[in-house]
Design a protein around this nucleic acid. Structure first.
Lengths: 338, 338
DNA sequence: CTGAAAGCGCTTACAG
DNA sequence: CTGAAAGCGCTTACAG
């Protein structure tokens, strides 16, 4: 179908070997006069190298696999942008899999990436990964055959990657809220089976404990906007926050939960922050345009994506971990009632 | 490095041909007893087929290339999710390129996807594509060698795809706002060089004209959150909306512009919607949790992604165009001042 | 039903 | 510097 190297070589009156050396880089550089002829022939014929044939001959595909739970989630899509940006111009292409937190799909993606002989697999997201026997076996096999595994925001004994200090950042947020004067807290924890959610809650609660404060309650639920909305509705209906005794500051395990919670608070005729203060985590883009603007922890997601890509570009140690920390951003949603 | 088919065949005591037929699908099905032996050997050795070798032998890579301007933009990431979802389980992998509206990077992505012998290239985003001579030449060459080009949300003479009826949907939004009682309008048009932005503005303004109404002004600027913010600030500072004469309804060419504009309005001590009503376009996820909630046009982005993937799965006509329409959603931000 | 062999389109030691 | 040839790991007519 497409033009082959042999045709270019014939057109230029040289061997395939020479054409290959001219067109696709090599230490041996043919004479300029010949090189020129080859380039002209390639241009004339519209030649594009067959990446599959090159990969096979070179035993290297120049491919990276990126696995996320949901590419439409700003958390993951911003990381993906960072990865893309850093890899741009390197000649390495990104294969994307969005698995919807389905471990069967995740395993399928890993296997497909193995088949495609990707140089590395970047795994973003969070789950009790160590539990997933089959996935771990597949990844170990991948590593055994020279593949590189980079974890983003979740630990895995066998691989290095980017560690997000969810615990430390949540603790820092708690510290700022305490310093602002808050004393009564509640936590919308999301799904405790998600490592990310669990760590954020733990860091927050531990920091409170250092001050001798215990949250009124820690409510488990779903790690989504609707999860935050429904949890908050339930708590308010049950009167669980005892608002008559004063303002309560609610920490939500991520921003979209915080948005859902704020809407629920309003639906119950209450005000943010004077009745219920709300804080989230992630700093998703639209947060600053909310009214009131929303307190959160800012995560350098794009930078995280870039750093993950750096693991591929520069051959650092297999199990090296880069630690990234979030930074609390106090906004109007946690103003203390005067 | 990795296990090869030949080793599996040897382990099972059969030929490579037989092993191939058992493992990687074929019309010829070997005897069950032998098949079982081959499968066991593959399992024992941890065999994964080399996708590059398969692609080369089959002359088909089972790959699709997706080009977006910015994967972190919800518009594109939601489309990407739809594409992924529909392709999931089909054995087709997605190669992703996020080009940041840089036409050189876009061309590079197309060439790389051609090299990788992708079955199709899905182009999302909007620009004066027909102007880009090199891109058009490359895409035509791609089509000539059997590749399929699917345009998403932007036209290109040589290819079919998903047509977004930006013009019609913007007109429908204008109709609803008129029906609600608005009579004084302004438009934050974004960048008129972007086809998407231009069509939305045209549809909106044309519908007003049918009612004999002309907007107070159409302001050009940048198609981003900050663009909306800065445009609105400038207009308010200049007193361009003549608010003393009554409420003005401002149509922004996309949602993030609307968010920026709303923040600017508040910064100037004015209220949404009573002083200035605001409408956007796209229906990005957090819009419903805003206060006031924001009027917009809902686009079925995920469905658009799925349909684009369908172009690849089912071999429809090369230039077939599926038209998708957005639906106006009136919310609090455009309530008429009573 | 099974296998030997050619072929997919490149790259790269190895000779010349 | 240039070219003939083997090899990358599969698939698939073609024989048997």
């Amino acid at each position: 179908m497409a033009v082959r190297l042999a045709e270019v070589a014939a057109e230029a009156g040289v061997s395939a070997a020479t054409a290959s050396r001219v067109l696709n880089g090599s230490s041996r550089r043919p004479a300029e006069e010949i090189a020129e002829r080859v380039r002209a022939a390639a241009e004339r014929l519209g030649y594009y190298p067959n990446a599959q044939a090159q990969a096979l001959a070179r035993s290297s595909a120049s491919l990276v696999g990126l696995i996320v739970h949901d590419i439409a989630d700003p958390y993951f899509s911003t990381i993906a942008r960072g990865v893309q940006e850093r890899l741009s111009g390197s000649g390495i292409q990104v294969m994307l899999a969005s698995t919807g937190r389905d471990s069967a799909l995740e395993l399928e993606a890993v296997r497909s990436f193995m088949s495609h002989r990707t140089d590395a697999i970047l795994l973003a997201g969070s789950r009790g990964l160590s539990d997933d026997e089959e996935l771990v076996v597949a990844l170990e096999r991948y590593q055994g055959s020279g593949g590189r595994v980079v974890m983003i925001g979740q630990p895995l004994d066998l691989a290095g990657g980017i560690h997000l200090d969810n615990r430390g950042a949540a603790a820092a947020l708690a510290a700022e809220l305490l310093a602002a004067g808050h004393r009564r807290f509640a936590v919308l924890a999301g799904d405790p089976a998600l490592i990310t959610a669990a760590e954020r809650v733990a860091g927050f609660v531990e920091r409170l404990a250092e001050e001798g404060i215990e949250p009124l309650l820690v409510s488990e639920g779903v790690f989504t906007r609707d999860g935050g909305h429904d949890d908050m509705s339930r708590l308010l209906e049950a009167g669980a926050l005892d608002l008559d005794s004063g303002q309560v500051c609610v920490f939500c395990a991520n921003d979209v939960m915080a948005l859902g919670a704020m809407t629920a608070i309003r639906e119950h005729g209450l005000a943010v922050p004077s009745d219920v203060a709300v804080a989230g985590f992630d700093d998703i883009p639209t947060l600053g345009d909310m009214v009131p603007s929303v307190t959160t922890v800012r995560l350098p997601l794009e930078e995280i994506g870039r750093q993950a890509a750096d693991f591929v570009l520069s051959e650092v140690d297999e199990t090296y971990r880069e630690s990234v920390r979030g930074e609390p951003v106090l906004r109007e949603s946690t103003a203390v009632r005067s």
